[in-house]
Design a protein around this nucleic acid. Structure first.
Lengths: 256, 256
DNA sequence: GAGTGGTCTAGACCACGCG
DNA sequence: GCGTGGTCTAGACCACTCA
């Protein structure tokens, strides 16, 4: 079928313009719908046959597009039911960005912790925060600081910066008491879905205040984890600086 | 086609035995050939059509099998040339298990470091080493310790344990002077290909000796990185304990 | 131009979930 | 029993590599 999916002519192009396979174009279109919130996190997207008809391509082509989206965790397939927009609320992938695990315990997550929010306010972005979030230095950001405790032991101290624009009205209450992953709360209350993240990890010593918050000695080494989380389109939407106690936990990473 | 790929009957099975799709079986067969070293790292494997004929399935089915192997980095496809057994010697994926990067510098690797081997000898496996490598406590292991320096600065101190059986004759000289990734040397000289790895990361303080080797003060926090590397079949083949200086480097991790 | 992987199609049938 | 994703096939054509 010589189809015609809007943007790229795809055939008879004078200048060999990089050549984008059909399924990539379809993927782009689906991605667009996801970005625009046409289908919300947790909802089904149209079936493969439906999409194939809509885009006037074969089901196999749509399939390959969705395969890639699934591989990137943007979408989840469930046989017999349909394909769903991925969400951090899904039990199986809750806290998938949290790599800190207890040393003991077969596996599975440090999970829902006790959260104590120390502060949460609107401020102007400092230079480095602005750079990380691709904002101007004068833009407003929400800055929060909280402590996560596991089994009563304060284990993570983290500072969070979010673009003020998208997170108007975020409260300490939400950060502390939302039942479930914070990223799920972001999806539900602000329509912001974190899609991937990058972390830079270092070993550091706490300053006096940090040591107090984490109830440790000044000489206790900590993991410093700086995370930038991205929404669709590689847009940075969160900067997070965490200090992790690792006497009884470790950061687990799988290399493939 | 009602094909017959050796092991699983695949059809008319009385007891609904988990059901393994054809392409998974094909994948298993290819995997077996890889394990047995029928095709060596860096070599081409037979073409898709050739494999399809050999296994009496369609090319699409072979394709899907190889797709998965490629996704797991066991194999590398190159259009127009063929499909190649992955190797740590490939420039683009060299040092892909080394996640420590310099803070400055656009990206790219800490790369080929200066390596100084402090020791390399055969010993009996201690209890924890034996457990990590799935050996008996009495089995021989090769134990090595070395320092990696970047731009003259000693940055990584690492202890390595390898099953004595598979690594008979490994010398300090090889560990120090092999031009290229150590894992490439393992492939070439011992026929052992590391396929994936898991790391547990903590923040620690060095003891006196470690501080001396890394030329740092006793209070300098370090990243402790414990890695278990696996060959085919999830067989653990290396235990590595690294201490990373992170004043000017960081451990980078991508979360998807 | 021959050979390899990459894309695309159309159609058949299977496994799963649910009413 | 129907609709969904999952598997499998066969065949056509495209893009890349190399002799």
């Amino acid at each position: 079928m010589s189809s015609s999916v809007a943007p790229i002519p795809d055939e008879q192009n004078g200048a060999t313009p990089a050549f984008s396979p059909l399924y990539q174009q379809i993927k782009g279109l689906i991605l667009q719908s996801l970005q625009q919130g046409q289908w919300k996190p947790g909802e089904v997207i149209p079936s493969e046959t439906e999409l194939a008809a809509r885009f006037r391509v074969s089901q196999g082509t749509v399939r390959k597009a969705i395969d890639e989206l699934a591989a990137e965790n943007l979408v989840m397939r469930r046989q017999g039911k349909g394909t769903f927009v991925a969400t951090h609320a899904t039990p199986q992938v809750q806290y998938r960005f949290l790599k800190l695990l207890p040393d003991t315990g077969n596996d599975r997550i440090a999970g829902p912790a006790q959260r104590r929010v120390i502060e949460c306010r609107r401020v102007r972005a400092s230079a480095d925060v602005a750079r990380a979030l691709a904002l101007r230095s004068t833009d407003a950001v929400v800055q929060a600081r909280r402590i996560l405790s596991f089994a009563g032991v304060p284990t993570i101290l983290e500072d969070i910066w979010l673009p003020g624009q998208a997170f108007k009205g975020l409260s300490a209450e939400q950060l502390a008491n939302y039942p479930g992953p914070t990223y799920a709360m972001f999806e539900l209350d602000f329509g912001v879905r974190m899609v991937r993240a990058e972390e830079k990890i270092r070993a550091v010593l706490p300053d006096a205040q940090q040591a107090q918050w984490l109830q440790i000695g000044a000489g206790t080494p900590l993991l410093s984890v700086e995370r930038i989380a991205y929404t669709y389109n590689d847009m940075p939407m969160e900067l997070r600086r965490g200090l992790y106690r690792t006497e009884n936990h470790h950061y687990r990473n799988a290399l493939n």
